[in-house]
Structure formats: structure tokens, C-alpha cells
Design a protein around this nucleic acid. Structure first.
Length: 492
RNA sequence: GGCGCGGUACCCAAGUGGUAAGGGAGAGGUCUGCAAAACCUUUAUGCGCCGGUUCGAUCCCGGCCCGCGCCUCCA
């Protein structure tokens, strides 16, 4: 099955397959590690994760490279303000970033290169561009890319720069540029700033340079797919193309994927709007990592997603439905054999699921057949018609579903626990939701004991005591369910 | 101004030239000591508005209204 994915470059949905027939080489722009990641950042990383997982599920190995931008203006400024070296400053936020990715179950790329570890490659690239007459040095020691050297500039974002007048918006710091649109390759060091002594002078890399250099090193000068948030299309990706194609004389990435920004409660997320959330903020409010994951990937990546607390609650309910069904399948014993109707239902669900994802990663459409199958399965179990082979067929479909969505396994406690540890260290325990605090105060053992006491009370028909225990636990976020096979409980 | 996206039931959200997936929420019912879970029934004669093309449009075309994104370092 070949994935058909929208290609920003062509403006069309096109098959995405490895050029070398082996593995798909993809580069996804990673974070600038100057702060904790917010849910907008994570939507992009999650959508790339969906892509990655679907490729793997359909048998295409991937070589996925994601950079860590560990030097830029904000990092230099913030590290200086904190009075620590930039490496120390970025290490903290990089660790937090990966902890957050783990919480959201975003798979690690094969290669995670750091900008500061590839200064040499970037210098070589600048030299190559200079030799080609596409880069020039200004009086202060900075290097710029000469846009005039790359006539097809703008082909990705469909911008026609020919009508743009030079000099209209010249930055005062950059008065030496030949053209206002020329962008920085290398920035000369200002006194006291972090800098590298190199063959092209003392300074630090411009933002765009690192991606061109590292993509070439780890994927080759020409590769299959480049991905990132929609804001990166221009100028970042446009500049990467200009640098790389001018230096290497071959097409850079063949396919480009851009993830749309999300809205939060109907508005663009911003600190001043009060709708700016990091992953940690949400975990401390008591939302599960799995709910956040599902909420962020349930709307297809090219559509604007309106992230809301209602949406998180909905995702939680949807996940509970799936998990309850999955538990039922694995914990109930079924007679040997198979029934044609269920086999057919499983086959159909599987086909529709794969087709939906193959169609430009339509995650919303992909969910539908899975829930259809859940209902069919529940009905069959209720009516005693499910047989062992039916269960196996349905579990196989759920497994394919989870290979991409990854929300079935209930291991939400760990991300929440880690967030609480962090909140304590950061002195932010006052932000923890009361119900979460109460739930965390109960150990599994103490819950088991109370559940056992309630079961005993029920046996003696002391329903008042039984209900009291159930209500007390409910108040602390623990839900009890009785069934023929015993009592189940779960944390809300 | 340039480029682009969207307006589908109470909410979220797919989708198709032939009459509207799925999830959540609500209501009624079955089951249950009561709940929960699960299942059944139920909630858009209509898919922003107005025209047009068509045997037929939510889906195609035109206009309008509304919301949103990007336009030099925000994923």
C-alpha cells in the first residue's frame, strides 16, 4: 500500500515512496530548545509521528532525521540572562522536550543531530556557496545568501518576489546587505556572544544553514521528504532549498509536508490570550497524555485543529471506549471457531482504516471503521456469538490501529507522575488539579483493599457501605465497574 | 494588498454529482441491589447565503457574508 501525501511543492496529492526503493529518507525540522514545548509544537511532531508510523506499518522502513537547534538568538539571550553557557541552558530544555515526546509516545527519529555539532558542515556549505558566487561577506563579518543567485526562489510557498522592491523594509542591523531579501548564512559575533572561530570568520550559524547541512550529511543532497510546521514553509524551507540546490546542483527534498497550526479554544494560541499551554500545563490539570495525543492527531494534519478542553474530554471518552472493548476481548474466554459475519467486519474495518490513512493521512476518517468494529464486536459478545478466531481477527485490527494511534495501552500514570515530579521541583504544585492530587494520594494497593472491602459488603448485602466506598473513590477520581467477571477499577 | 484554508446536527468531525461516516454529549429502553460498562432506539428532508450548470448539488461554476492562517527566524 502506497501512501498518497499532499506535496506542498507541487500542490497536489502524490504517492510517497522511497526513491531508492529501500527506505524513506525524511527530514523533519525539530525544536529550538529555548523553552518547554507547547501543544502547538507537539501537534507538528505528533503528525510527523503519524506519518512515520504509517510508513512503518505498511512496510516502508524510514530514515528519519530531526535536528535540535541549540543555538539561536533567543538561546543566547536567555542563557546570558541566566549566566550559564548555552550548552547548559539548552541541555535542560532538550531533556524536557524528549521527556514530553515520550509522554506523548512520539517515536524517536533515527538521527537527532545538533546544530552546534555541525559547524564544520555549515562552514563548508557557505564556502561552496561563496565559490558559486551565491554568498557574500559584509563588512561586519556576516555572510549572506544572494537571492538573485537562485531564480526559482519562492517555488515552495508560491511567492513571486519579482515585484518586491528592495529597501522597503531594511533592517537597520543589516544595512550592508546587497538586497533586503538576502538572508543570513552566518552571523558575525558581537562582543560577548557565543561564537565559533572558523575559516569564514568568528560568528555563529544562521538558522537555515543547519538544516541544509545536516540533511545533506545524514540523508544525502537529495532525499524523499521534508516536513515541518506551516510557518516554516516561508522563509525557512524556502531558504533551505535555495542554499542546498545552489550548492549541490540537484533537487533538495522531492516531497514537502506542512502541518497546519492549531487554534486553542477558537483563537490562535498566545500567551497574551491566556490560551497558551505546554504539555506539562495540561498534565497538571489532570488530562491524560493519551487524551492529548488523540485530540492532537484526530483532525487531519492539513486542517486547522481547534484544541479545546471539551475536545480533550471527548478524546478521553473515546479512548475509554476503546480500552474497555480491548479489555473485554483479552479477558473473556471464547469458544473455538470463527463466524463469517465478524470475520468480514474485521476485514472491512481493516481495509477502510488503511485506505483512510493512505489517503493523505486522514486520521479522522480512519477512526470511523475502528469504532464501527467496536460496536460490532461488543454486540457479538453480548449475544454470545464471538468465537476465538473472531477475537483474534479483531485484535489484529486494533493492533494496526494502535500501531499509528498508540492510545490503547493504559500507561498514562507515568507521564502524569513525571509531570508532578517536575511541578514539585519547579515549585508549581499549586497548579495541580485537586482531583489529580487526591487520586495520586491513593496507591493501587489501598484501592485494591477498598474494592475488596466493598465486595465483601456486597456479599452481606450491606449496600450502603458498598456505595459509600464507591462514592468515596469516585470523589478521588477512581471509577469502579462491576461485571460478571469481577470488579474493575480505573483512575479517571 | 499577495498567497492559501475553512464554514456539515448540541459540540468535535469525515465525506460524496444521486440524496449525509465516526466520536462526544443528551433523551428513552435492555441489563444491574443501585450504578458503571455494554447493547438497542433516538437527535441535520439538510451540509454559511444567493444565483447558475445538471434529470439530480452539500459536493461543480459565479457572486456575497463570516472565520482563520502565512507574507523574514512562532510548530
Amino acid at each position: 500500500m502506497t501512501l498518497r501525501l499532499f506535496n506542498t511543492l507541487s500542490g497536489q496529492i502524490e504517492p510517497l515512496a522511497p526513491a531508492d526503493g529501500q527506505s524513506l529518507r525524511m527530514y523533519a525540522c525539530g525544536p529550538t530548545v529555548y523553552d518547554f514545548g507547547h501543544i502547538g509544537n507537539f501537534r507538528t511532531f505528533l503528525e510527523v509521528d503519524v506519518l512515520r508510523r504509517f510508513l512503518l506499518l505498511t512496510g516502508t522502513p524510514v530514515r528519519h532525521v530531526m535536528n535540535i537547534t541549540d543555538v539561536d538568538d533567543k538561546i543566547i539571550r536567555n542563557a546570558a540572562a541566566a549566566g550559564i553557557p548555552i550548552g547548559e541552558y539548552t541541555a535542560k530544555f532538550e531533556a524536557a522536550f524528549f521527556e514530553d515526546l515520550d509522554s506523548l509516545k512520539v517515536q524517536r527519529p533515527e538521527v537527532v543531530p545538533h546544530a552546534t555539532a555541525h559547524i564544520d558542515q555549515m562552514i563548508e556549505l557557505v564556502q561552496k556557496l561563496a565559490a558559486a558566487g551565491a554568498a557574500y561577506k559584509t563588512e561586519d563579518g556576516s555572510w549572506y545568501f544572494r537571492l538573485a543567485a537562485f531564480p526559482s526562489y519562492g517555488k515552495l510557498s508560491k511567492k513571486d518576489l519579482s515585484g518586491m522592491e528592495d529597501g522597503a523594509r531594511v533592517d537597520v542591523d543589516e544595512y550592508e546587505k546587497d538586497s533586503a531579501r538576502d538572508f543570513a548564512l552566518w552571523k558575525a559575533a558581537k562582543p560577548g556572544e557565543t561564537a565559533w572561530d572558523t575559516a569564514i570568520g568568528r560568528g555563529r550559524p544562521g538558522w537555515h544553514l543547519e538544516c541544509s547541512a545536516m540533511a545533506a550529511k545524514y540523508l544525502g543532497e537529495s532525499f524523499d521528504l521534508h516536513a515541518g510546521g506551516e510557518d516554516l514553509m516561508f522563509p525557512h524551507h524556502e531558504n533551505e532549498i535555495a542554499q542546498s540546490e545552489t550548492a549541490n546542483h540537484k533537487p533538495f527534498a522531492r516531497h514537502w509536508m506542512h502541518v497546519r497550526f492549531l487554534l486553542v479554544e477558537g483563537r490562535k494560541m498566545s500567551k497574551s490570550e491566556g490560551n497558551f499551554f505546554t504539555l506539562r500545563d495540561l498534565l497538571l490539570k489532570g488530562y491524560r497524555a493519551s487524551s492529548i495525543r488523540l485530540a492532537l492527531i484526530s483532525v487531519p494534519y492539513r486542517h486547522q485543529l481547534n484544541f479545546t478542553f471539551d475536545g480533550l474530554a471527548e478524546a478521553t471518552s473515546a479512548i475509554d471506549r476503546l480500552r474497555t472493548f480491548h479489555d473485554r476481548l483479552t479477558k473473556t474466554s471464547f469458544a473455538p471457531g470463527e463466524s463469517p459475519a465478524l470475520q468480514e467486519a474485521a476485514k472491512k474495518a481493516r481495509e477502510e482504516y488503511f485506505n483512510a490513512l493512505a489517503n493523505d493521512l486522514n486520521t479522522a476518517e480512519a477512526r470511523a471503521p475502528i469504532f464501527d468494529l467496536v460496536r460490532a464486536g461488543n454486540t457479538a459478545i453480548d449475544q454470545g456469538q464471538m468465537l476465538a478466531a473472531d477475537r483474534d481477527a479483531i485484535l489484529a485490527v486494533l493492533s494496526d490501529f494502535d500501531a499509528v494511534f498508540d492510545v490503547l495501552k493504559d500507561d498514562d500514570a507515568e507521564p502524569t507522575r513525571k509531570a508532578l515530579v517536575w511541578a514539585e521541583e519547579a515549585g508549581r504544585l499549586d497548579e495541580v488539579a485537586p482531583e489529580l492530587r487526591a487520586s495520586q494520594s491513593l496507591t493501587d494497593e489501598s484501592i485494591d483493599a477498598l474494592v475488596a472491602e466493598r465486595t465483601a459488603a456486597k456479599k452481606t448485602r450491606d449496600f450502603a457501605r458498598a456505595d459509600q466506598i464507591r462514592n468515596d473513590l469516585a470523589a478521588k477520581g477512581v471509577v469502579i465497574e462491576d461485571s460478571k467477571d469481577g470488579v474493575r477499577w480505573k483512575r479517571k
